[in-house]
């Protein structure tokens, strides 16, 4: 299953014209995965036949939805679930033994509308080993627009339906009109700020855990390498890095090693590289 070159070209040109976002060759899988739900909703089995119809009809509503699907940050609470299991079962209990000061700093480096940092906050609350600890979560994104939504901490019914176990919903959220709002004690754990990963991070401090998931895929190799190198500089030497399921450090920045955690893996700075961090 892959999108044809013609269909990809049409979508790329349309998205560029409407949003100035450039979908380079190599982003076919992104286009396919984002458009497949839209294709299915409109009765198509494949993105190719969906795009063929779009080219024929130029249906304005659908054309707009295509742009939205490709430019909106795809996110949900506890996205992919495995990293949060790893955080609760492996990473936090291990760090709990190594931090006599009973405090931890976490960075959610492409936090979008806030579901990831709030999921981290909820996970720390549900991890007995760090109960009562001071947990600071710094959540950053390029877009001020998504950060404004994230700061508000308010989510629609459709959004809380995604990935959030209902027991967690009623425990950590309150109804707010037709929406749900994250409880103030969790919101207080998260500090949102604007940050462009391609530029120097500035004085962000040092982190015990970094979530850098599903963002490196958008960058070229040199940029990926540069970002991973700079992430090392703001990590505690024994810290943990979470990447997206389709991302890895191998062949990009080999100062990292992949270690199993829960049902997935996390990345740590290799022992022989840790002295270079300071």
């Amino acid at each position: 299953m892959s999108i044809g070159a013609d269909a990809f070209g049409f979508v790329r040109d349309h998205v560029r014209a409407e949003s100035a976002i450039v979908l380079e060759t190599g982003k076919e899988y992104l286009v396919e995965s984002r458009l497949l739900p839209l294709a299915r909703q409109t009765g198509h089995d494949s993105v190719d036949t969906f795009v063929a119809e779009l080219r024929r009809t130029r249906n304005p509503a659908l054309m707009r939805q295509v742009v939205e699907a490709l430019t909106t940050n795809e996110t949900s609470f506890f996205r992919d679930s495995d990293p949060f299991v790893a955080l609760r079962q492996d990473v936090l209990p291990t760090l709990a033994k190594e931090r006599p000061g009973r405090s931890l700093r976490v960075w959610a480096a492409a936090c979008s509308s806030g579901q990831e940092p709030y999921s981290i906050a909820m996970t720390t609350r549900d991890t007995p080993e760090v109960a009562g600890w001071k947990i600071d979560i710094v959540a950053t994104d390029l877009s001020e627009e998504v950060l404004a939504k994230a700061r508000k901490g308010e989510y629609s019914q459709l959004e809380v339906n995604r990935g959030l176990p209902v027991t967690t919903l009623v425990k950590h959220f309150q109804r707010s009109g037709i929406n749900w709002r994250i409880n103030p004690d969790l919101a207080a754990m998260v500090q949102f700020r604007q940050l462009n990963l391609m530029r120097p991070f500035g004085p962000v401090g040092r982190f015990d855990v970094v979530f850098l998931r599903n963002v490196l895929i958008y960058f070229d190799l040199a940029t990926k390498r540069d970002i991973l190198r700079r992430v090392r500089q703001v990590m505690a030497p024994d810290g943990y890095l979470f990447l997206g399921a389709a991302e890895m450090t191998m062949g990009v920045d080999d100062a990292w090693e992949r270690v199993p955690a829960g049902r997935s893996s996390v990345y740590r700075i290799r022992e022989d590289q840790r002295s270079c961090v300071r």
């Binding site: 739900p37 019914q157 459709l158 339906n161 995604r162 209902v166």
Partner: peptide, 9 residues
């Protein structure tokens, strides 16, 4: 699961 919902949800 609260209606309306997406198939993904």
């Amino acid at each position: 699961l609260i209606k309306p919902f997406t198939p993904d949800a």
